[in-house]
Write a protein that binds this DNA or RNA. Structure first.
Length: 373
DNA sequence: CTCGACACAAAGTC
DNA sequence: AGACTTTGTGTCGA
């Protein structure tokens, strides 16, 4: 049976037309400020878990759940002069979620876009030389970490500590069960969707920006702005060096490169961690074409526990693996070329209900959202 | 029931 | 304006 336009439900409804009347923030680190980003994106939220981004020009109003973080436990990030660094991860689900019946709702087969940037809160007076003078015309909030060395204080098994130099920073996005924290697979498609490979979101290098005690001055920007590193076609294999001419605009995945397209195709193998091998780093990383691999259980069923997932953005500090051999490291990933990724901080959304079937399946149910079984 | 695959069609882009 | 691309989702079989 063919699908007619009359049968085909409308795409995602317009996000809520109301706006929060007061500003609030991504994490507890932030102070009060309503800001206008250089990109032209003002940002407010959350209001009852809502966060709004107002993109430049005529793009539709975006709507994202707010991400919140727990205080980092270990390791501690610091400057060479031992000045501690506060970290803020700004993350947004800039596409793919609806807010319906007072909860966030996703469809397993619809794409999510997740945008991340990272701000280090450091008094500029605490920065050792060289000061970030390479960009004197940029606002302070746009200055990056490039000219500075950061270190991680690593606890060792013998009870002492070691200061380990950070080679670079990286972020990734994962999902988990809201209640028990068990991992929930995310998959990333290429533009070929079903015809192309699928795999876990990569661990992508990122260049944090610096804030002089004004973390909220650098909100997340829309991925279309600021030259965000858009991980659209980012299917470069872990061990293949990035070519100098590689471009994110050129699809790199194809059926002729099967060696790195296995990804999640095998249900029997746990997919290995994937690491973005781009030498280029960006201040904003956007993971696009992300899907939940499975739906939540008991969607809308009465008298059953509604399972919820959450999206988690993680910041890693990449260090030399040889310096971690006797370290007490709980959350870390092994990279390639002797790199170890130590988790610095993570932020997560609240619960998201993920529907596994088409919207039409739910449309004629009571309340438009509940499966009554 | 769930999930992957195939398919159609609307909207966006070139 | 038309072709092509992208993506939401209807449907079906395993």
């Amino acid at each position: 049976m063919t699908t007619t336009s009359a049968q085909r439900p409308q795409p995602l409804p317009a996000p809520p037309a109301f706006l929060p009347s007061f500003p609030s923030y991504h994490s507890g680190l932030l102070g009060p400020l309503s800001s206008l980003h250089p990109s032209g994106c003002a940002q407010n939220g959350p209001l009852s878990g809502l966060q709004f981004i107002f993109p430049r020009a005529s793009r539709a109003l975006l709507c994202t759940p707010s991400f919140s973080g727990l205080p980092p436990i270990l390791p501690q990030l610091q400057l060479p002069n031992l000045h501690a660094v506060r970290v803020q991860i700004n993350a947004a689900v800039s596409r793919g979620l609806r807010f319906e019946s007072a909860r966030w709702l996703a469809y397993r087969r619809n794409y999510l876009s997740i945008t991340i940037n990272v701000v280090f809160d450091i008094p500029l007076s605490a920065l050792p030389t060289p000061q970030p003078s390479s960009s004197p015309l940029l606002p302070r909030s746009r200055q990056t970490v490039d000219n500075h060395n950061f270190s991680i204080v690593l606890d060792l098994r013998n009870g002492t500590q070691r200061v380990v130099r950070v080679k670079f920073f990286a972020v990734t996005v994962v999902a988990e069960d809201e209640v028990n924290g068990r991992p929930v697979d995310l998959i990333q498609h290429t533009s070929k969707r079903d015809q192309g490979p699928r795999r876990k979101p990569v661990v992508a290098r990122i260049r944090p920006t610096l804030s002089d005690g004004r973390l909220s001055a650098t909100p997340i920007s829309h991925p279309a702005s600021l030259g965000a590193h858009r991980l659209l076609e980012d299917f470069i294999p872990m061990d293949r060096p990035a070519s100098a001419g590689s471009s994110n605009n050129v699809p790199t995945a194809s059926s002729s490169s099967p060696d790195y397209t296995a990804g999640l195709d095998s249900e029997h193998d746990q997919p290995p961690p994937s690491f973005d091998s781009h030498l280029e780093t960006a201040e904003v990383v956007c993971f696009e074409r992300i899907q939940f691999k499975r739906a939540t259980a008991n969607n809308g069923r009465k008298n059953t526990a509604q399972q919820m997932f959450r999206v988690v953005a993680i910041l890693y500090a990449a260090v030399d693996e040889t310096e971690c051999f006797d370290g007490v490291v709980s959350n870390a990933e092994h990279g390639t070329n002797g790199i170890r990724y130590l988790e610095v901080q993570r932020v997560a959304t609240g619960g998201i209900m993920v529907r596994g079937r088409s919207p039409g399946h739910y449309a004629d149910r009571v309340g438009g959202g509940g499966m009554i079984q």
